[in-house]
Design a protein around this nucleic acid. Structure first.
Lengths: 152, 152
DNA sequence: AACCTCTATATAGAGAGGCTATATAATTCC
DNA sequence: GGAATTATATAGCCTCTCTATATAGAGGTT
């Protein structure tokens, strides 16, 4: 894929495996009142502005009926609004509301809180070492985001 | 909690937030034929040997009826066996089978594969930097595991 | 030994979230 | 203007989770 390998095959697999395992661990720590897909959808709307249902379904990797149902649920909860597209009477433009943004913030706070408790188990030296990797962790997420939001 | 803070409050929150966000991102990349709880349960059984249903429910943070139902599903799929405890006729000792271990391996492989594709988007320098954090990522998972498996 | 209480698991029924198949309405293209 | 296409909605089903409750074995008391 890449011109030259950045990591040896073994390192690449070990690192990827560790990240996957940690991810599963972290997500299981946080109780979910709102589904992962719902949160991720709100995040997409916040980042990229109003989107159509079909686009959201593609971005989230769920079927269109599932996204219709999710949007209906979020709408009832007041987290999003359906607006009509003046240019095309078929489409529903989904917009996040202040309530939706607040939910997103709260969810991020709760998630970070849970991970922070895990971080407290590290020594000062370990914590500092991990902090050095922070930009790289953020970069990984950006990489995924770019691929994900491309579904326009 | 800890005697002295290893990180500033802001760093701690940013790092925790980044890890949580990345975790959610990573897990949404991997299609799930088997539920997260099922995989995590198989992993617990592999690590710690046969366990009672009630223990597994506590460790996974689900209700006992949910765990009974999950074990039944896993048993039908051949991934675990129910054995009786000679010392107590009420308990069902759940044991992972070879098929269960194979499922676990395959799932880890698929997860790592998906993350590896993300890693390929990093430059050689970034990838090497992240590799340096590998032991710390593993350590975080161990910390969680210790808390989790304690439910004996 | 009979009984009561506690514990381990199972069952029943309901709700959320996902899927496929299909219906409906608006747009686009001859 | 009518057919084909596209965007969303609806219907029906499956899985996973929950609470409430039933069943069966263990343990202690008299």
């Amino acid at each position: 894929m890449t011109p030259r390998a950045a990591l040896s095959s073994g390192d690449r697999d070990r690192l990827a495996g560790a990240i996957y395992a940690l991810s599963a661990t972290v997500l299981r720590r946080v109780p979910r009142e709102v589904s992962l897909t719902a949160i991720s959808t709100l995040a997409t709307l916040e980042r990229t502005g109003p989107r159509r249902i079909t686009e959201l379904a593609v971005v989230q990797g769920v079927s269109q009926p599932s996204m219709t149902s999710l949007v209906t649920t979020l709408e009832r909860a007041g987290h999003v609004e359906r607006r009509s597209d003046p240019a095309d009477g078929r489409v529903a433009l989904v917009c996040v509301t202040d309530s939706g943004r607040a939910t997103l913030r709260e969810r991020r706070r709760a998630g970070a809180q849970s991970v922070a408790e895990l971080l407290d188990g590290l020594s000062a030296q370990e914590a500092t070492g991990l902090l050095a990797a922070l930009p790289l962790l953020e970069r990984l997420r950006e990489l995924d985001e770019q691929q994900r939001d491309a579904g326009s």
